[in-house]
Nucleic acid binder design. Sequence first.
DNA 1: CGGGCTAGCTGCGAG
DNA 2: CTCGCAGTTAGCCCG
Lengths: 255, 255
Amino acid sequence: MPIQLSDAKKLIEGILNKREMLLVTGECFVRYQGRAGSKLPKGKRMLMVKADKSFAIHQNRFLRPVNYMMNAVVSTKLKENVLVIEALKRKPKELIEVFFYSVDFVKGLEIEGEKDLSLFGSEKELSDQLMQDLSLIEPGLKPLKQESPLRKGVIDILAEDSEGSIVVVEVKRRRADLNAVSQLQRYMKQVEKIKGKKTRGILCAPSIGKHSMELLERSDLEFYKLDYEISNPKAEIKGLQKKQKGIKDFIEGKQ
Amino acid sequence: MPIQLSDAKKLIEGILNKREMLLVTGECFVRYQGRAGSKLPKGKRMLMVKADKSFAIHQNRFLRPVNYMMNAVVSTKLKENVLVIEALKRKPKELIEVFFYSVDFVKGLEIEGEKDLSLFGSEKELSDQLMQDLSLIEPGLKPLKQESPLRKGVIDILAEDSEGSIVVVEVKRRRADLNAVSQLQRYMKQVEKIKGKKTRGILCAPSIGKHSMELLERSDLEFYKLDYEISNPKAEIKGLQKKQKGIKDFIEGKQ
DNA sequence: CGGGCTAGCTGCGAG
DNA sequence: CTCGCAGTTAGCCCG
């Protein structure tokens, strides 16, 4: 049994004021105009509004909402038997209008807002571990700087090898792609220009695609296969081994 | 008033069988192990499971869920006064365990599942329009192929100019970045090698960053400022103008 | 604020 | 399947 739209409006406003998580379901049409534009024809959907004014329309499919906005200014109005819920933002200017023709269900939920998730296995964590012991890559490698900002990007690890060459290290937690190779190439060229010294570029990743490997080798970069394990409180590097042309098996290695 | 966990379990299983959208809220602890690992300490959260087995734990903040899995195999079990809801996947092997110590609320919703959103203003749409009339870029430009697949990427538009040179066009719907320039550079070099002809690279975007512009010019590529409007049924290109070093104002142009 | 980047990216489409 | 990439990417961090 549907809820009276005027009752729904009051309920919704109360929940928004309390900064609870708001859920609304019903028959609605959705229009969006902003960075792009969209229309969602009439149908049953769920609207979710969070305390930080994340605004999302969900269908019964996909992780991602079909329409959304963050940091929205939310307002409701009742007009000719339609309950309109608007999400508005400026910079960039964006507007979502949800036209509810009927409302089945309105609910406010007291839910945790903090982001208290502890995650392990991130690229940063792997980079930290490498920084601790660059001899994993090769003996005599000395750390210079982590997260070194260039004009055109940020270098994961900057180091110096036993012969005094600069070494640029790029770490990837998953299979390296063309983009990763281009990135490293960019960094290496910049460092070479700035420092005016012989510079090497090293890509560390659990695996790399065939085309990416070709591009890497043509660019005179080096690939190191990075083995790691995600155990409970943190990820651990298990091995790091240089790979080159002749060797093919590692290409198949999925993470 | 909390729901008995055994009742909650039955309700949840019924809703999952009906392929309705499932919502469960309550006090829970969440553990994830897979491509990475995470722990979410005990607290009130909302679990959402969709018909396609998208599985998401939401907090009252952010658009994105704090833990998630797509195409999950979902199962429930009751164990020592804890209701455990598991999401399992192989390839890659992933597991989310949600330990509900109490359940406040269980709901099944009949919600649309189709993806019936019509969206306009995508990169593909802009590329289509450009393909219709390449004279927007320069007179005499003849289309050769759209979405042309190379070994190392896909070219948006491949064309030939009035002097018989190959032209590679890359379109971006938003401000072009370093990555976009690298992409175009890659495509251009490949085409040059394959065709063995003089090749130009053109980047079309509403704006471009200063560093990206530098990189682009050093790579002998060209930038065209792409103005477009998103009107109702589709986006429309309003203008396309070549920009080079001397001209600076367009750098400030946010889309 | 913009600039650059990671992400357990997700989702799509071609080979 | 994998590969490459767009995305209203979101969210983060550092200048």
